[in-house]
Simulated assay, not measured.
Amino acid sequence: MKIITKADIGLIIVILLLSITSVFAVPKLLATEGNGKEIVVNLDGEVIHRFPMIEGEESQFIEFPFTVNNVEYTGKLEIKDGYVRLHRLPDEISPLSIHADMGWIRESYQMIVSLPIKMYITLEDTVEEESVFDIIVY
């Protein structure tokens, strides 16, 4: 009496191959492209700037003005290959470089934060996805 047959071994191999490929395929399928995203700069809870995400191999820089304690400052964003990062802000308003050390973000669930001035940068999808579900549930 055999416990495992050749068909069982084949089925186990197929299941293992499918599970391994799904580990690599699912993140690729769920990730969205840079087009259709916006960079949103928030200061103290309100949106101060919105910029379109630009795809490109060359670094592109966007400078944006903002005011903290009635003093005008300029922030600098760097965009490259669908990623964005915030360059170092002046020491007067952000003494630690944690926001610059956060690095690059690409997905809408990631953010760059500068706590002393309550500034954060996020990515938002500009293309609204249609929901499969209705608002009304019976």
Rank of each mutant, 00 (worst) to 15 (best):
59 S>D: 11
46 E>L: 08
114 S>M: 08
124 E>R: 08
124 E>P: 02
122 T>E: 06
4 I>K: 15
31 A>F: 07
129 E>R: 13
132 V>E: 14
79 I>A: 07
35 N>Q: 13
132 V>M: 15
28 K>P: 06
78 E>V: 00
53 M>R: 03
81 D>C: 04
24 F>Y: 13
108 S>W: 01
96 L>V: 13
135 I>D: 11
24 F>P: 05
110 Q>R: 00
24 F>L: 14
29 L>A: 11
68 V>M: 05
48 I>C: 03
3 I>W: 13
30 L>Y: 13
16 L>I: 13
87 H>K: 07
55 E>V: 06
37 K>Y: 03
83 Y>H: 08
39 I>A: 00
13 I>Q: 01
101 D>I: 02
67 T>K: 06
48 I>T: 10
115 L>M: 13
53 M>N: 02
78 E>H: 01
126 T>A: 07
71 V>N: 14
86 L>M: 09
110 Q>A: 00
57 E>F: 11
18 L>F: 14
51 F>D: 04
115 L>R: 09
65 P>F: 00
28 K>I: 07
47 V>T: 12
61 F>V: 10
67 T>Y: 04
8 D>H: 14
121 I>W: 03
132 V>C: 12
135 I>E: 15
25 A>V: 05
27 P>T: 02
49 H>L: 04
133 F>Y: 12
110 Q>Y: 01
64 F>Y: 15
50 R>T: 11
111 M>N: 13
18 L>N: 10
128 E>P: 05
118 K>F: 08
119 M>E: 07
59 S>Y: 08
92 E>W: 02
70 N>C: 01
26 V>N: 06
34 G>T: 07
130 E>V: 13
92 E>Q: 11
84 V>Y: 00
120 Y>K: 05
120 Y>M: 07
94 S>N: 10
19 S>G: 12
132 V>F: 15
54 I>H: 08
127 V>W: 04
73 Y>A: 01
75 G>N: 04
27 P>F: 05
35 N>V: 06
84 V>M: 00
15 I>P: 02
92 E>L: 09
60 Q>V: 15
12 I>A: 11
40 V>G: 05
98 I>A: 14
26 V>M: 10
34 G>H: 09
132 V>T: 15
26 V>G: 04
77 L>Y: 03
103 G>W: 03
11 L>H: 10
16 L>N: 15
58 E>V: 10
71 V>D: 11
64 F>D: 00
77 L>E: 03
26 V>F: 11
23 V>R: 12
48 I>A: 02
83 Y>S: 06
44 D>L: 03
133 F>M: 14
41 V>C: 07
